[in-house]
Design a protein around this nucleic acid. Structure first.
Lengths: 252, 252
DNA sequence: CGTTGTGTTGATATTAATCAACAAGTGTGG
DNA sequence: CCACACTTGTTGATTAATATCAACACAACG
């Protein structure tokens, strides 16, 4: 079941020459081998869209009519409680699949953080796509399994980690991103870009905006990170931060 | 992509006549149609095992050599932090798949709560299985997608719900179980069986054992539930409990 | 320049954790 | 059958981590 270094999927056939936003690799296929004829078939099945920052393209509760693949940009995925409490369940970047689950309505909302290009398939066309590209089904299973592992890791974070550990985990997770690029670029990166607001980080980590701010300030004060601008964090002591993130380091 | 009422998968070919532990249906196939010849092929590929309560059959960090399907019984799935903090990421009952993710080592541990029968495939044989049963791959993708939805719901619970809301969600979730039986048995059930300890419930909900106990006592005091024995909860006011679980009901 | 959105910092409140005692089962051996 | 240990669950008192409330700083923008 091993696949040798899968190139990131960017389904938009017209973008085959555009480098991956993260790693710069020019990649466009679901698996290692795909030809221009395949790209034509893809073009027929899919619709290309752009989404402005702040705009939602999936609304929780709406009929689940489409399946998406992120071509570029980042979205936040979230669930809401009636009184407005929000849990961000993840951030979807280049190559990410959305709306895989088969159910009558979406179980989450998705909103663009940055300008996005997404590739959209109607459910019937997704069926055709999967029949046309057998490798696609295998790849999707692999992707879904890996997301499940990440989701379980996030449950550990939300259920059992302290605020300090959550922030450390978050920063390390961003630094080690994106997994699909690991073959192309040495990881981890020292400079972490945070395209989301403090509020988004708080809702992702199950904290308040104040606690996020305070905890980052504390980590900075200890020399573990630097914060040149509020959307950039430089990791100064990666190993120490990993120690905190994994719970190996006591308190702080 | 709709599939009409899929019967629960119980991979153990020798158990084809045994009813599902939850709903009593006699089902044994991954999809609606499977014949005795298929069962023979399954038998060759898989190994049947039993696991005693309290025994682990998956250890986090061990080489991920097998893929599992639960034939009967229940397991708890969990992750640990170095200092012993534990997060139970889910409970795996009849029909549940485990070890799907392709990675060198397991990312979680699994321990039996009740006597279990499980059906095990080595990775190479899983590959053969998937090639032999094309419907299997589709079904696994469907299963993984649904688990992902459940994981996101659990993130909302862990990140944003109060102790009271967590317990209500947990009980409602158990009452509405098992999803694969929905076609056979009217849901929800009033009587909820809790094969796990208070400690397990606490580690699943991101709380302490004391908070779980206190919150259940409070719900009982309000007439929402009854607790005839510590492992049985009877839901008296299902709608009210749903209201709490979904955050529609203010405080308490 | 004021306005607005975003982030930081301080003071206080609150939820759930921790610490502690006890009660109720469960199983063992005498 | 009963004493005993041991596990599991309940309840109370106190503490601690994080949320809430509040003020202010700063940048982007018309």
């Amino acid at each position: 079941m091993s696949m040798t270094r899968i190139r990131p999927l960017i389904m938009d056939p017209s973008r085959r020459d555009e480098p991956c936003a993260h790693c710069g690799a020019r990649a466009y296929s679901v698996c290692s081998a795909i030809d221009s004829k395949d790209l034509e078939r893809l073009a027929v099945l899919s619709t290309q869209m752009t989404v402005e920052p702040g705009r939602s393209f999936i609304e929780e509760g709406d009929p689940a009519e489409h399946f998406f693949n992120v071509t570029s940009g980042t979205a936040k995925l979230f669930k809401l409680l009636p009184d407005g409490r929000r849990q961000i369940t993840g951030f979807a970047g280049t190559g990410h699949f959305l709306g895989l689950a088969v159910s009558s309505s979406y179980s989450f909302s998705a909103e663009a953080l940055e300008p996005m290009r997404i590739c959209r398939f109607s459910r019937p066309k997704l069926r055709v796509l999967l029949d046309d590209f057998p490798a696609m089904e295998k790849r999707l299973l692999e992707v879904a399994s890996n997301e499940l592992v990440a989701a379980q890791e996030q449950m550990l974070l939300l259920g059992r980690k302290t605020a300090r550990e959550r922030l450390a985990s978050f920063l390390i997770g961003r630094a080690d991103m994106p997994t699909h690029c690991l073959g192309y670029q040495p990881s981890p990166t020292e400079t972490v870009r945070l395209p989301m607001t403090r509020n988004d980080i708080a809702d992702y980590l199950g904290l308040t905006i104040e606690t996020v701010s305070r905890t980052l300030t504390k980590l900075k004060g200890e020399g573990l990170i630097e914060i040149p601008s509020s959307s950039i964090v430089v990791i100064k002591r990666h190993t120490a931060l990993v120690g905190i993130a994994t719970g190996e380091t006591e308190q702080g």
